[in-house]
Design a protein around this nucleic acid. Sequence first.
DNA 1: CTATGGCACGGATT
DNA 2: AATCCGTGCCATAG
Length: 477
Amino acid sequence: MFVSHSLEQKHQATAHLATTMSFLQLANAELEARLLTALDQNPALELVEELRCPECGRRLRKLPCPSCAAPREDDMPVVYLSPREPTYGRADDDDEREWRLEAEAPERLDEYILRQIGPALTPVERPIAAYLLARLDEDGLLPEAAAEAAAFQRARLSDVERVLALIQHADPPGVGARSPQESLLIQLECLAESAEPTARTIIELAGLIVRDHFQALGKMEYAHIARVLRRPLPRVEEAARFIQRNLTPYPALAAWGEGRKARAQVMSDSTLRRADVNISVLNRGNTNSLMVEVFTPLSGWLRVSPEFKAALAKCAEADREKWSQAVTEANLVAKCVQQRNHTMRRLMQIIAAEQRAFILGGDGDLLPFTRAHIAKTLGLHESTISRAVAGKCAALPDGRIVPLAKFFDRSLSVRDRVRLIIVGETRPLTDDQIVEELARQGVHVARRTVAKYRKMLGLLPATMRARRARARRVQVR
DNA sequence: CTATGGCACGGATT
DNA sequence: AATCCGTGCCATAG
């Protein structure tokens, strides 16, 4: 009886310990939920009024207010906890890519498409859709003919075709096509539906070219195409440009790359992320040191209610046990939140100091940086850093919302350089030539690696790229 | 012969 | 211990 009781108590304690220990890996939204239930269930836990900066009115954890205080001289970023409502923002497109790559599993694409077409499916069509979606290759193409699928599934051809048509008109435009060529045609079809009348003619011409002169298009034989179609050369070139800029032979890759124009409208709410920390530039005097706000979910701070503690001393014997447990539990929660805040602050300070260039600049300025490195300088275990970083987002001074994991991307800056080189090229550079160019910039990677990055970026090989230097996505700034 | 993509291995990271 | 990532080697397409 005695033993089992203490065991039970111990078990409960460790259970609570386990849950509170994991506070670190929770993002703000989740932590808020946890704390609210804790406040609700535990009478010993108390939320103390927030403070405000007398000068700027900003909500604060403690005085003085860092944004009003003098900037630090050692150029270390100021980090403080802010109970202010977190900033929301549209995730910057590169992050979208991050997330997609992390969860790259093809079935994600399946699910995404299935969600769109699901409601339109009859019970007969459902298994057909599941089958077809499972057969999509990594580019989002479906190598087999509808008839084959029908035979394999022992379904009616007309049913298969209907489902296929649904898939092909679902969001990443062009998925489910049998070949890149067919995919392009489907994408054109989708574009034509929403296009302005003025754009119709160019789309029409593009369609002709893709359908009848696909090979020639790949080889950039525009003069030849123009002659056969009896259209002026500039028009053909314009159409080719249109194809290059708006279509992709790899619809699945387009889902996070080029396709975001269309996607942004569809997924407006899911691209809106809530930041867990905010990094801004403090312009005071000539210094522009960084300021980091680590958002805390509740405005105010947690502690064990002194009244409750006082009451505990003179309460009835019967209740004492229960109440004192509530007190220890409350203590634990408060401690853990404190611990979490402390870790987050130190972590963000290091990150902000180390990746200052990236925060103020762009992807190309990201320095190679590992969690292990931080763990060492902070004297924490690597897994602690992993948990702290996992699933959290930072708002950068220029409005980007990036996952903290991005600060640890070893290859991002190189990928960005590859992108810039290709975007700025005057003639198509082969992967080997890109390797040379990178070496000139002091970055040494293998040719094979460049090829991989190029594919990640959704860029075509040199032999299939137009020589014209085009501003691919600079327009979006 | 050159440029790329596929497979797979080893080492670093988590 | 599991996973990710860069890279080397080889096959293939042009």
